[in-house]
Amino acid sequence: MSRESTTPPEGYDVGRENMFDFKVDDQLLEVVETDAKNFILTTVDEVFNWAKLSSIWPVTFGLACCAIEMMAASATRYDIDRFGAGAFRATPRQADLMIVSGTVTAKMAKRLKLIYDQMPEPKWVIAMGSCAIGGGPYFKYGYHVVKGVDFLVPVDVYLPGCPPRPEVLLEGLMRLQDKIRGRKGKSKAPKWITDYAKKIPYRK
């Protein structure tokens, strides 16, 4: 990322407080503006978070019909690879994310916990679908269904639906990326970027 790449388009005036949301003392400001053209100011955490959220590798783990939607999300039409989360790992030891896609039966509970425990830190969990959130249609008479996967493992993002469409999974993945980024809700792009995005024809 070079300094030029963040330069606003021609004719668009921008205040410096929009470019940098931290205080810059005069000496550092002078260095940035005069000496170095390829200069990045960031924190180590921010870089690490960016790396983490850009390569969330899910574990290959599907339980029921939600897994079909998860597979559709990883196929070409929805293409979860756009978000760096398309590398479904066949072992939990290489995975960062567990998408609990489907009904968690009591028999599967032990296995699910084992898979989660085998995943290295940092790790995240998405509860996909009504069954994983709270038992779904098996809430009352399902003698064999765990009433919510959050009784077993900590859940980061809940995706309602029966089953949720692939777009919902992608949305949940983006919310998880927001969480990893350390921000709440939608990411805050600088105002000139959002204004500029409105001028792109296909966004209209």
Binding site: Y138, F139, K140, Y143, F151
Partner: peptide, 16 residues
Amino acid sequence: DYQMPDQWLNVPLRGQ
């Protein structure tokens, strides 16, 4: 005449 268990391995099975 089956009675549904309240919980199994400390995981609640009864929807409440």
